[in-house]
Amino acid sequence: MALFRPNVTKDYDNGLADMLDVIGQNYRENELIAASRQKPDRKIIGTENGHNRSNWVPVRDYAPYAGMFLWTGIDYLGEANRSGWPNIQSPAGLLDRTGRQKIIGMQRESWWSDKPVLHVVRNADPDAAGPATDGAGGPNQPALPTMIAVATPRPKVALFDDWTPQDSSPHDEVVEVYSNCDRVEAFINGRSLGAQPIQADASPRRWTVRYAPGEVRAQCLDAGRTQVFDSLRTAGPPVAILLEADAPTVGSTFDDLVYVRARVVDAHGVTVPSASHRLHFAVAGAGTLVATDNGSSVDHTPFASPDRAALDGHAVALVRGAGAGRLTVSATADGLARGAVTLQARR
């Protein structure tokens, strides 16, 4: 059970909390930790928590805290009151509506995973709020009461999963890395920017560089983990659509779907983040097109439409089988080479 406002109703003092086998509380992690320290036999868990480092670090550093439930794991339709019309969703997730990992999800993975994790992004304004922006008092944000915070528009975020800024002239950019590796070295076009150790407060590692087109790369330096790296490359003009399915086969029942992800790419296969072409999806053979999406907060195109604008160079088609056989999913757009992928359908 989650205690909603124990600081107001005095649940930790009046005996109500101790009637529970496990005490849950929404947000205010330090308050729950204080209640645990007051009576160490209390079993505690977070029942709704934010994405900020200020939410994460207390839980990480207090072993009796059993875990936390994040609001939310994935973007969802509705509750768009933060930003108002024409927004149709709450963009609070670690994943977007199509299941694609967002930058905030990259950061969380680096905190939580037992496996080596390394993600490199471009931070165009490191003085802006970081990727965790639920308004509950994270980096560069005012600490607000929770109910005010959840109704407050999110502050500016200037994080990008690309090395293709709109301004292609020389200027300062920040390479930002999320990783659980003890040491990480960053490079631009093969030139080392130096190595940095992991931060005790779980903050990202940053290198300020003079922008030049090409490649930025970050590599784990830990023994046995030097094969762990991530990189971003500058995109050229869009020339083609690349399709990739998340599984090679798909069933034909109501519950069967395969996600076919489309990327608008340049001649070297790099996603073009400015691409917003209107893609037309089609299915030939033993399959049907169920829906299309791009994860946008403001796209009102019906999900059943075969036409979908790319967002940051991405879109997705949801496809179901129609009996045993082969099916081909294709995507076309003006000025781009057609993309296609062939799958096997099951009954």
Rank of each mutant, 00 (worst) to 15 (best):
E244K: 12
S330I: 04
A340W: 01
A309Y: 11
G325N: 04
A129L: 00
D18P: 04
A66G: 02
R82L: 15
G224Y: 12
L118A: 07
A63P: 13
L32P: 06
K43Y: 09
R210G: 15
T226M: 05
P237Y: 04
A291V: 01
H277W: 10
G138L: 02
Y259T: 04
S110T: 12
V121A: 07
I188G: 08
P6M: 00
V22I: 15
G323I: 11
Y178T: 04
G84A: 01
L221W: 03
G251W: 06
V341E: 00
L94I: 13
I74C: 13
G295D: 08
Y178I: 02
N52F: 01
R261H: 12
S203A: 15
M68Y: 06
V298P: 02
A66V: 02
I241D: 01
S252L: 00
K156F: 12
V59S: 11
G46H: 08
N30P: 06
G67N: 05
L144Y: 06
F303P: 03
P86M: 03
S192K: 05
Y12R: 00
V22R: 09
D125Q: 10
Q196V: 09
N81S: 12
V120A: 06
Y27F: 14
I74S: 11
L70F: 14
S330G: 11
M19E: 14
L95D: 08
P145N: 04
K115P: 05
R233K: 15
K102L: 13
S274E: 13
V175H: 03
V341L: 05
L336A: 05
A66M: 15
G84H: 10
N87Y: 14
L3G: 04
A267W: 01
C220W: 09
P116R: 01
E176T: 14
A80T: 01
D230F: 04
L336K: 07
Y76N: 11
K115W: 09
D167T: 06
E79S: 12
S90D: 15
S169T: 15
D172E: 14
A245R: 05
S330Q: 08
A337S: 13
A340S: 15
K39P: 00
D172M: 09
A317T: 05
Y27E: 10
D161E: 12
Y65H: 08
V209M: 09
T226H: 08
V228M: 09
G285Y: 09
L159R: 04
T271G: 07
A136T: 12
V298W: 08
E185V: 03
V57T: 14
P238Q: 12
A218H: 06
A245Q: 08
G323A: 04
I23P: 06
D334V: 11
A331D: 07
V329K: 08
R97F: 06
R346K: 11
L159K: 01
S203T: 15
I88P: 07
L242P: 00
